[in-house]
């Protein structure tokens, strides 16, 4: 099923620079547990790609394979125009990775971490110092630069982590759950940072379990479930996959609510809050038909809201077949 979602092969691509990351049939198992069960990817350069999935779906494993940290059991992948297995050093030269667990050296200061990166990218000393100072400033870490990184808060560590990733000006950046565990303010700061990266032409591969995050940041989203890509497309395309739209009517008068329940057989009701959900699209025509029907049957709701399907509906529909897509969309965190 996943291979039908999109074309993947770009081996004869005349413009390898146009494709930042491509993969075909990536597999990985630990013992008898299959973590990735044939993943195909094709990510254009300069775009933001989100791999969305619940815990344990295989997101981190995918990042680890594509960033040369571990090797796949089967399948091919090219990152930045280089084969993962044939030329891992060239891949490493093109990428920057910010893993799920902070990849900073806690025993040394933030500034020393930055200078370490500059040295490992073989920048001349003055340039290394300049780049380190600039990035510390940009990520609001100048005040804490002389303190050991182990004393940083979660948000600061994550910012230092990304700052270190940027020292070598990578063209492709992997961010594994960049906002997990961050408070709302730090999360929004992180989103802003990611948006700025993209304006510089960098390709971003991010994983997240938050639908809102993928919706906010990504050009394309792949939903990963049980090691397979269940669906792939833009946020809008994915939303169209599930019929999650409905109109919600709220009543204050229990009698009016009961009458409406009898008159509208397709509606599902909630007797506690006196609300009715009627499946319906959000087009003008569909709404007009519904409103006309309400008018002719004499139903007067106190409040009417139109609910369009969001990624939550998609997510629930795709990642859990036992789950009904029409769940009330609670905040996911």
């Amino acid at each position: 099923m996943p291979s039908s979602v999109m074309p993947t092969s770009n081996h004869n691509d005349g413009h390898p620079s146009q494709v930042a990351i491509s993969a075909a049939g990536l597999r990985k198992s630990y013992g008898d547990k299959t973590v990735l069960d044939g993943i195909d990817l094709n990510i254009p350069a300069g775009s933001v790609f989100a791999l969305l999935g619940p815990n344990g779906a295989g997101k981190t494993t995918a990042v680890k394979i594509l960033s040369t940290l571990i090797t796949a059991d089967a399948g091919q992948a090219r990152v930045g125009g280089h084969g993962l297995t044939t030329n891992p050093q060239a891949v490493r030269a093109a990428i920057g990775v910010t893993g799920q667990f902070s990849a900073v050296d806690g025993l040394i200061t933030g500034e020393e971490n930055m200078l370490l990166m500059a040295d490992l990218h073989h920048l001349p000393k003055p340039e290394g110092r300049r780049v380190a100072a600039e990035l510390l400033e940009r990520f609001d870490l100048t005040a804490a630069a002389k303190k050991p990184a182990s004393t940083y808060s979660g948000g600061m560590k994550r910012r230092l982590d990304i700052a270190m990733t940027l020292v070598g000006s990578p063209r492709i950046i992997f961010l594994d759950e960049p906002t997990t565990g961050l408070d709302p303010r730090s999360r929004h700061t992180m989103w802003q940072i990611i948006r700025e990266l993209v304006t510089g032409g960098v390709t971003v591969f991010l994983t997240t379990q938050y639908l809102e995050e993928a919706d906010q940041l990504a050009d394309r989203i792949a939903v990963l479930n049980n090691g397979k890509i269940a669906a792939e497309g833009t946020a809008e395309q994915l939303k169209r996959l599930v019929p999650g739209g409905h109109v919600r009517l709220r009543f204050t008068d229990p009698t009016a609510y009961r009458t409406a329940t009898h008159t509208l057989p397709t509606a599902t009701g909630d007797n506690e809050s006196l609300t009715l959900q009627i499946p319906s699209g959000a087009t003008q025509h569909e709404l007009r038909t519904l409103l006309d029907h309400l008018h002719t049957t004499g139903i007067e709701a106190d409040e009417l809201t139109v609910h369009t399907p969001d990624l939550d509906d998609v997510f629930f529909a795709l990642t859990d077949t036992a789950h009904i897509p029409h769940q009330p969309t609670e905040a996911t965190r």
Partner: peptide
């Protein structure tokens, strides 16, 4: 056990 080792492994060093 430090995260930075994983970073080193993904760098062209």
């Amino acid at each position: 056990t430090e995260g930075i080792i994983a970073r080193f492994r993904t760098m062209a060093i």
